[in-house]
Design a protein around this nucleic acid. Structure first.
Lengths: 342, 342
DNA sequence: GGCCCTTACGAGATCGATTGCATGGCCAAG
DNA sequence: CTTGGCCATGCAATCGATCTCGTAAGGGCC
C-alpha cells in the first residue's frame, strides 16, 4: 500500500534547532547528550529551545549512526496453537512485567507474535537488526529453531523448560520439582487416581508430566491413569476433554492440570458434571496466575514467580548483549494450597 | 551503560551481496524490491545469494531513507493504576488481536506501557518518529493529554469511551447501551437493590455507570443504592470492597460490575461470605473475557467484540495515516446471559 | 609582545539503504 | 553504416543523527 511520504507538519530536526540557537548541529547533539564540551550557558539555551519546539531526537537516524536500536524484541511463538487469540494470562502477565523491566532500562519493546506457518521468524528478526537482543516467551515446539539460532546469535534468551542438551539460554521454573510437589500433595491427601491434563510435547509441560510420573513411581502401589492431552492455551479444548473423560465413565479423584487455565476449565467441567470440588475431586493447577486465587473454589497451584522470571530474563539478556556468556537459570517452584484441594 | 559496539560476526550488508553478485548495491536493492528494471535472471541470482547468506535488509537504514518505520506504536497508559502488573485480560486479549491485525498489514508493533509519573509520554513518542501511527489502549485518566496531542497529530486512535466533545478518534463499545441492557435484565429478573462496582472516573466506566443510572430512572419506584468505587484492574481491591460492603450489613440482590475482573472477584467475595449466586444475589459483568464463560458459575456479562474492535482500530489508523480524517466508531454491545444471573 | 596550551566549536565523514539521473550498450529503422 | 531510442545498470545524493579531527579564539606565562 502507498502511504503519503510526509505528515502535514514535518517535525523539527536537529539542524532546525541548531539554526535557531545559532550553532552547528554538532553542538546541539553534544548539548542534548549533556556533553561537558559545550558551555553550560549554551547547553541550557539549547535544551530550552528543544523543549519549546517539542524537539525529540529522531530515533531512526540515531540508531543507524550508533549501530543499535535501543530496543529488545519480544517474540511469542504459537506453533502448537491453532486458534488465534493468545489468551493464556500467564504469558500476558509475563509480558506486563517484561514491559516494566525493559522500560526501566531505557529500552523499547518490539513485540512479535508468530503463528504458523512459521518460517524464518527468528533468523529474519535477527538479520533485520531491528532489536539489540531477543526474548522468546515459551519454546512452543520450536526447540530446533532456537537451537540453530543460538549457534550464531548470542543475545537471545528464552522462557521455558531447560532440556538436557541445549545450547540456548533459558529462564524457567523448576517444572519437574513443582509438579512433583503438587502430585505428592495430592497423594498425601489420599488421592489414588490422579489424572494429568496437558500436552507433553511442549518442553515445559513435558517436564511437568515427568514430575507427575516420578511422584507416582515413588508412591508404592500407585499407578498413573492415562493422561489427557490438551493444548494448554484454549480453555475450550480442556473443558471438552474433561467432560468427555467423565461422560465416558472415566473415574478419578484428582486432576493435575498443566496450567491454571486448564485447571479452571477442569473446575468448571467438573461442576457442570455434578462433581463437587474438592470433596469428590481435588484439582491442582500450575502457574498461579492472578485469577487462580479468584476462581471458585480458589485454585491450589504451583506458583511461578513471574516478576522475578521477567527480571531474570532481561538481566541475562543484558549480560549477553554485553558479551558475557550468561548461563541458564532455573527458579524454585512453590506449591500454593488453596481450597480446590483439601 | 556501555555496550560493545559490534557483535562478534557483523551481519552482511547490501554491498556485500552486491560484491558477491558482481553488481552495484542499487541493483541489489532493486532486485530485492522485485523491480522489473532488473533482468529476471539477475534478480533470481541475487535472491538466491541473499537467502544463502541469510541477508535481510537493515530496517533502520531503510526506515531512515524512506521516512517511515513500518511500525505502529501501541501504548497502554496506567495512570489510574497504582500497582504494577497490567493484568486485566481484556487489555491483553486486545493486545493479541492487535498483534494479529498489525502483523497482517506487514507492520511491526512497538509496545509501550506507561506508568506514573506520566509526563510527555505521548508527545515524546510522537516526536521521536518511532512509529508511523499510534494506538492508545484505554483512556485511563489521560483525556486531556490525548485531546492536546490530537490537535497536531492525526495518525492516532484510542480505544475507549466516546465523550461528548472530543477531538481524538476513538473506537469502543456502546458502553451506555450495554450497561442499560445489563441492568434492565437484572430488573426484569425482579432484582430491586442492584449495586454498581467500579470507578466512574475512567471515561468508559463512567458511561457504564450512566447506563446503570438510566435503567434505574426508567424503572418506576426503583432507586440506585450507593455504588462501590474500585479501580478496575486489580482483583484484590474489588474483592475487599465487596466483602466490606457485605460485612457492613449492606444488602443487595444483584451486583453490576464495571468489568469481568471485578465481577469475578465479586463472585468469590459473595461465595466466601456464604451468599449463593445466583439464587440470592445475581452478578453481571462487562467485557466477556475468555474466562468469563469459565468462572463458577459462568458469568452473565456484556460482550465487547474485541477482535472486531482491534481490527477497527487498525483500519481507522491506516486510513488516518493515509491522510483521511477517519471518524470515531462505536460498536454494539451484546448481553450474554449465563448462570450467574437467573 | 610572542608563544604555547587549553577549550569550545564546526566541517565533514559515516551508518546502510533507496532512487533520480546519467550513461553505455544493443537493436532496429532509415 | 549511421542514428535514435530503449533498457539495464551504476553513480551519487539523500535521510538525520553522531563523532573524529582540525582550528580559531582566548588565556596564562615569560
Amino acid at each position: 500500500m502507498v502511504m503519503k511520504p510526509r505528515r502535514r507538519t514535518a517535525p523539527a530536526k536537529m539542524s532546525d534547532i541548531a539554526r535557531l540557537a545559532g550553532v552547528s548541529p554538532s553542538t546541539v547533539s553534544r548539548a542534548l547528550a549533556g556533553s561537558p564540551l559545550v558551555t553550560a550557558r549554551k547547553r541550557e539555551e539549547i535544551h530550552r529551545l528543544a523543549r519549546e519546539r517539542g524537539y525529540v531526537v529522531n530515533s531512526t537516524a540515531r540508531n543507524l549512526r550508533l549501530q543499535r536500536t535501543q530496543t529488545l524484541g519480544v517474540v511469542i511463538p504459537l506453533a502448537h496453537e491453532t486458534s488465534q487469540p493468545l489468551s493464556d494470562p500467564f504469558f500476558m502477565e509475563m509480558l506486563g512485567w517484561l514491559a516494566d523491566a525493559i522500560t526501566q532500562r531505557g529500552y523499547g519493546m518490539f513485540l512479535l507474535k508468530v503463528l504458523p506457518p512459521m518460517e524464518g521468524w527468528l533468523t529474519d528478526l535477527i538479520a533485520s537488526q531491528r532489536a539489540d537482543g531477543i526474548i522468546v516467551i515459551g519454546q512452543s515446539t520450536e526447540h530446533q529453531t532456537l537451537e540453530a539460532a543460538a549457534l550464531h546469535y548470542k543475545p537471545l534468551v528464552v522462557w521455558g523448560g531447560h532440556l538436557a542438551a541445549q545450547s540456548y539460554c533459558t529462564v524457567g521454573t523448576d517444572n519437574l520439582a513443582g509438579a512433583l510437589a503438587a502430585v505428592e500433595h495430592l497423594i498425601k491427601l489420599g488421592r489414588k487416581r490422579i489424572v494429568f491434563v496437558g500436552d507433553p510435547a511442549v518442553p515445559e509441560i513435558g517436564l511437568r508430566y515427568e514430575g507427575y510420573r516420578l511422584a507416582h513411581e515413588r508412591a508404592p502401589g500407585l499407578r498413573a491413569p492415562p493422561h489427557l492431552v490438551s493444548s494448554h492455551l484454549t480453555p475450550d479444548t480442556s473443558y471438552e476433554a474433561v467432560r468427555a473423560f467423565i461422560s465416558a465413565g472415566g473415574n478419578c479423584d484428582a486432576i493435575f492440570a498443566a496450567t491454571d487455565v486448564i485447571a479452571m476449565s477442569a473446575l468448571r467441567a467438573l461442576t457442570a458434571s455434578g462433581i463437587s470440588v474438592p470433596s469428590q475431586v481435588s484439582v491442582v493447577g500450575f502457574d498461579d496466575i492472578a485469577l487462580a486465587a479468584h476462581s471458585n473454589p480458589p485454585l491450589t497451584t504451583v506458583r511461578q514467580d513471574i516478576e522475578r522470571g521477567a527480571h531474570t530474563l532481561v538481566d541475562l539478556l543484558f549480560r549477553r548483549m554485553a558479551g558475557e556468556d550468561a548461563p541458564s537459570s532455573t527458579m524454585p517452584a512453590e506449591l500454593v494450597v488453596r481450597e480446590s484441594s483439601c
